[in-house]
Design a binder for these strands. Structure first.
Length: 568
RNA sequence: UGGGGCGUCGUCAAGCGGUAAGACACCAGGUUUUGGUCCUGGCAUUCGGGGGUUCGAAUCCUCCCGCCCCAGCCA
């Protein structure tokens, strides 16, 4: 991690930690953990938590564990733990050998449960799931005590042992904490801490038929790992009294839970449930679809981990529910890519240009700078010839006032090549422009006019005879609404899906050096944006994902003009 | 109508009783062989609202208003 990244701004969590350090709490140790449940893919929201937990540990000279919260075998799979490890590593964090699983603690958790029962703090309950719900009461009415609440410790011990031994049917009994059915906090109304569930667990197999619940397993896991600061999202705030209760009853190391606001992003959904719906419904091509906010999607799209970390540092950490503008993420991506990525020319929507006064059969190699932000990146040779392609957007037959690209009779610069002037527009039978005829000025080789003559535009181009054919996938946000959940009465977020979120361009022309690009390679296509080579690429047939466009003041002007026109 | 939180610029977010940081976005200019980058300047007389305490309040007290979370044998 670079120096510039380590200077993350302060936040209320760091302030708490600083106070703890000052008072010598926890022997001045700082130890955090990132605790994903392996039941889905990591997304940008998790990145915030990962950066926070690993970032704080490193800033305070402490450690951060990776712990899989795998207490619900019905939903969890090895596939997810693998992808999570890949993603955390990709983001740039290292948990060394500290890879833990709540399932590592099943025996210990069981023994502690015995301790709770002996102390009269937990009991086996025979109520069905429906009955438990009924007895729990509502938000405004207190609950009623279970008829099993007053069982003796001996009976509870016997029953719990038999639950563990598989004597009872799934769901027929639970182990519950004995707390307070009248509590205003529903989490304290004798919460279930063990349920019977005959499910194959991805790590413990069939060794257990009872599994601990999150509230019980999480705090004990934190304690066993001697986590000093257990950071989680706001919705667990009212679980904290329960977290504290277990640790107090058990008399074991007391980690401190601190809650922060989860990340929301405009024009994006960040919830496992909704992302799953997008995948299952075929609205995207999979978990790693470059339009997905999953880390695997973002990676395929070409977002660099450095940019994600920068973003997470910039958004801050607080308790107010918030939605960060997606433009900040895009800014971070451009900011990083601008500094370190090679520039290259590619034409997305080719328009053929014949340079009529350029000798037939001649070709030359022109020098091009690889990265003006980084002189060390050097230069390369780009072939030039009589027939080239330019972007269709870079020519207008009847241009508006503010348009300063190519037009009939107008002179522009071809980047690193020559000034050309449009002399003729050739159209097909439908009236579509099929090619342009231009003349070039041999004195402007390299792109400068010796007479000091200026042009208003510089265009990118590709020599037709040397071009590599490429497929380019353009992405826009998946949703048309800033808040995808903002739906007109009926329907859900899916009705805000952006039909134009993916646009595939099949006949793009790229400069020859792109022929041997490898999957994952990133480039700036000059004047267009940043692109990343997709794994779908095959030899000589590269596929590029547009990571993000360049800032485009011309597009902004056009949009503005359109709006003006519409309001007229 | 129970419990737990949160309200500072369009969006995040500092601020911790001494007179509103910063970033993104936006706007205006300059440089420019990318309408990119870079540079310069602008952008909250006011902190959800009302009272109060104080020489002094975004910060303390108080009442009110708004928003979020909780009734899984999910995490």
């Amino acid at each position: 991690m670079s120096d510039s990244e380590s200077k993350a701004p302060t936040n209320f969590i760091k302030q708490i930690i600083e106070e703890d350090l000052r008072s010598g709490k926890n022997d001045s140790r700082v130890h955090t953990r990132f605790p994903p449940e392996p039941n889905g893919y990591l997304h940008i929201g998790h990145a915030k938590s990962i950066c926070l937990n690993f970032g704080i540990a490193s800033e305070f000279g402490g450690l951060c564990n990776l712990r899989f919260d795998d207490t619900n075998p019905g939903k969890e799979e090895q596939e997810y733990v693998d992808s999570i490890k890949t993603d955390v590593r990709w983001l740039g964090f290292d948990w060394s050998e500290r890879e833990y699983y709540a399932s590592d603690y099943f025996q210990q958790l069981y023994d502690y449960a015995l301790q709770l029962i002996r102390g009269g703090k937990a009991y086996v309950c025979d109520l069905s799931a429906d009955e438990i719900r009924e007895y729990r009461g509502t938000l405004t009415e207190t609950g009623r005590e279970s008829p099993c609440r007053s069982r003796s410790a001996e009976e509870n011990l016997d029953l719990f042992q038999r639950m563990r031994d598989g004597e009872f049917e799934d769901g027929s009994r639970t182990l519950r904490a004995k707390i307070d059915m009248a509590s205003g906090n529903i989490n304290m109304r004798d919460p279930v801490i063990y349920r019977i569930q005959r499910a194959y667990h991805h790590r413990t197999g069939d060794a257990w038929c009872i599994y601990p619940m999150y509230d019980y397993a999480h705090c004990v896991s934190d304690s066993l790992e001697r986590i000093t600061h257990s950071l989680c999202t706001l919705e667990f705030e009212d679980h904290r009294p329960l977290y504290d209760w277990f640790l107090e009853q058990l008399g074991i190391f007391h980690s401190r839970q601190i809650e922060f606001a989860r990340l929301n992003l405009s024009y994006t959904v960040v919830s496992k449930r909704k992302l799953l719906k997008l995948v299952k419904g075929g609205h995207v091509r999979g978990w790693d679809d470059p339009r997905m906010p999953t880390l695997s999607g973002i990676r395929r799209r070409g977002y660099p981990p450095e940019a994600i970390r920068d973003f997470c540092n910039r958004i801050g950490v607080a308790k107010a529910g918030s939605t960060v503008d997606i433009s900040l993420l895009e800014f971070c991506v451009r900011d990083y890519l601008n500094k370190c990525v090679r520039r290259v020319m590619a034409v997305l929507r080719p328009l053929k240009v014949v340079i009529t006064n350029y000798p037939e059969g001649r070709e030359e190699k022109l020098d091009a700078v690889n990265n003006p932000e980084d002189p060390g990146a050097g230069t390369r040779k780009v072939p030039f010839s009589r027939v080239i392609y330019i972007e269709r957007d870079d020519f207008m037959e009847d241009p508006p006032k503010k348009y300063f690209r190519l037009a009939p009779g107008r002179e522009v610069r071809l980047r690193y090549a020559y000034f050309i002037t449009c002399t003729n527009v050739v159209k097909d039978r439908e009236g579509e422009i099929s090619e342009l005829h231009c003349t070039y000025d041999p004195a402007t080789r390299g792109g400068d006019a010796p007479d000091g003559r200026k042009v208003k535009a510089t265009l990118h181009w590709v020599s037709a005879g040397h071009a590599v054919d490429a497929e380019v996938r353009l992405y826009e946000s998946l949703f048309t609404q800033e808040d995808p959940e903002d739906v007109a009465d009926e329907g859900d977020f899916l009705s805000n899906l952006n039909p134009g979120s993916l646009q595939v361009l099949l006949s793009c022309k790229a400069e020859p050096c792109l022929r041997e690009a490898d999957a994952g390679d990133r480039f700036q296509f000059e004047r267009l944006g940043y692109f990343c080579v997709d794994p779908d690429s095959r030899d000589g047939a590269p596929v590029f994902n547009r990571t993000v466009t360049l800032k485009d003041t011309w597009a902004k002007v056009q949009k503005w003009e359109h709006q003006k026109e519409r309001s007229r």
